[in-house]
């Protein structure tokens, strides 16, 4: 419960569109230790390091109270299997429906890898563009959030997201998605998925900082984002991303 109210406060702080938000921001900005304007967040994902253990998915569901059913995810992990004949199979790694995964015989497989997915916190987010009431908005520190007090549940944003990153939370009847664990990062903590990943496949940080692990990741790797042709300018970038990944 405590976390809830904290998140709400932060939402009020960061609401860029609402006059009310601006008003609040002015009056509280000195008091708050966290300065949104000084940050701009992004994430890097090293495909080669992901072992498909799915702990990030678990951690996310736990941390963010995401419904447990296998069709509500703020983050999920896909397994790609590309066979010699060119056939591509993709599966969602879900520890609870593991039995559904079929293993191709090793001889047929050309290459296989895991791809963690989440909201890309697009810099040019179509979900924000379409929301009729401004319930989905971009914060000053570059995270796209949903104000669950304002969302009318029209689901337009879910249609507009090219990455399937959103779902309608059955408990609140409002749109929901990854927040980069906004309640954690504004306290200086890492997002739950990043913290729990045993291989450090996920790297979180400030895109503007010159010394963050994210900057180092960006210096050391050739990067790619998902569906670049849509010009959404994702802030989640992948190293060694395979062309088959969509």
């Amino acid at each position: 419960m405590e976390r809830r109210t904290f998140v709400q406060k932060l939402l009020a702080l960061a609401l860029p569109g609402g006059v009310f938000g601006l008003f609040l921001k002015k009056s509280t900005v000195q008091a708050a230790p966290y300065e949104a304007a000084k940050h701009y967040y992004g994430m890097g994902i090293q495909i080669d390091k992901c072992i498909g253990c799915g702990r990030c998915v678990e951690a996310c569901k736990e941390e963010n109270d995401v419904p447990r059913e296998p069709f509500y995810f703020r983050t999920w992990v896909e397994r790609y299997t590309i066979k010699k004949d060119g056939e591509v199979t993709v599966q969602n790694i879900d520890p609870r429906i593991e039995s559904g995964l079929e293993a191709a015989s090793e001889r047929q497989v050309l290459r296989s890898f895991f791809v963690p997915k989440l909201c890309n916190q697009c810099d040019h987010p179509p979900c924000v563009q379409v929301c009729p009431v401004g319930a989905t908005f971009k914060t000053t520190d570059g995270v796209v959030l949903v104000d669950e007090k304002r969302c009318i549940g029209c689901r337009y944003c879910i249609q507009a997201c090219p990455y399937g990153a959103r779902y309608l939370n059955p408990k609140t009847e409002t749109a929901d998605k990854c927040t980069f664990c906004y309640h954690r990062i504004t306290k200086g903590l890492l997002p739950a998925c990043v913290e729990v990943c045993p291989t450090q496949a996920r790297i979180f940080g400030d895109v503007r900082s010159s010394a963050s692990p994210l900057t180092r990741f960006k210096r050391m790797n050739k990067l790619h984002v998902l569906k670049p042709s849509l010009n959404t300018e994702p802030k989640v970038s992948y190293s060694n991303l395979d062309g088959e990944v969509r």
């Binding site: 995810f73 993709v90 599966q91 969602n92 879900d94 399937g164």
Partner: peptide, 8 residues
Amino acid sequence: YIYPNEIE
């Protein structure tokens, strides 16, 4: 394959 959230 569909994205898991797309079932609805």
